[in-house]
Simulated assay, not measured.
Amino acid sequence: MIRHLVLFKLNEGVRRDEPRVEAGVRAFQELGGVIPELTFWECAWNISDRPIAYDFAINSAVEDLDALKRYVEHPAHQAAAGQWREFATWVVADYEF
C-alpha cells in the first residue's frame, strides 16, 4: 500500500470562505467516491494556527505505484488540482506502508 499525503497552503490574501476555495474543497471531497484506485480518502481543513502549519490536507491510500499513477492522471483529480493551482501551493509525500 502507498500513503499519499498532500498539504496545501493558501496563497497570501486568499480566504477559506471564497467561492473558488469552497469549490476546490468540494472537488477534493468528491474524489473519494469517484476514483476507483483510492482505497482510503479523507481531506479537511487544518485546525492548527501555528505559523508553520499548512491550511488543508489530503490523506489517502492506493494499492501500488501503478494505482498512484492512475489516480494522479485521472481527469477528476486533474480538474480538482487545477482549481487549487489558482489559489494555493502544496507539498506531497508518498510512502509505502
Rank of each mutant, 00 (worst) to 15 (best):
V6M: 09
V6R: 04
G24L: 10
H77N: 05
V92G: 02
T89P: 03
I58C: 11
Q29K: 15
G24T: 09
I58L: 15
H77T: 04
A88S: 15
L10P: 01
Y54H: 15
T39C: 08
W84F: 13
I2W: 04
T89A: 07
W41Q: 02
I52Y: 07
V72R: 13
L38C: 11
A88V: 04
N46T: 07
R70V: 12
G13T: 09
D49H: 13
E63T: 11
F40Q: 14
I35Y: 03
A61K: 02
D17M: 13
V21A: 00
G24Y: 01
L10Y: 06
E37C: 07
Y71S: 03
F40C: 03
Y71R: 03
E96K: 15
G82I: 05
C43H: 07
V14W: 00
N46A: 06
R85E: 11
F56G: 01
A79P: 01
W45H: 09
V72L: 11
I35H: 00
I35P: 00
V25L: 12
W90L: 12
D64M: 06
E86R: 14
W84M: 05
V62R: 00
R16T: 08
L65C: 04
E37H: 11
A23W: 08
A44W: 10
G13Q: 11
D94E: 12
L31G: 00
R16M: 11
C43T: 13
G33I: 09
R70Y: 06
R85G: 11
W90H: 14
V62G: 02
G82T: 12
N59H: 08
D55Q: 05
D94V: 08
L7C: 14
D64H: 14
A81V: 09
S60Y: 09
M1A: 12
F40H: 14
H77I: 03
R26Y: 05
L10H: 04
K69C: 06
D94I: 06
A81F: 08
V92D: 09
F56I: 01
L65F: 10
H74L: 06
G33C: 04
R26Q: 05
S60P: 01
V92I: 13
W41Y: 11
Q78F: 00
A93S: 09
M1N: 11
Q83I: 13
D17Y: 10
E30C: 06
E86D: 13
I2S: 04
K69Q: 14
A79D: 15
R26V: 03
P36Q: 13
R15P: 10
H74D: 11
I52W: 11
A79H: 14
I47F: 13
V6D: 03
P36F: 11
L10W: 05
W90M: 06
V92H: 02
I52N: 08
L65I: 10
F8Y: 12
R20K: 04
S60E: 04
R15W: 06
W90K: 06
G33P: 01
V14E: 00
N46V: 08
R50N: 07
T39Y: 07
N11H: 12
M1K: 13
F87C: 02
P19Y: 13
V14Q: 02
R26N: 07
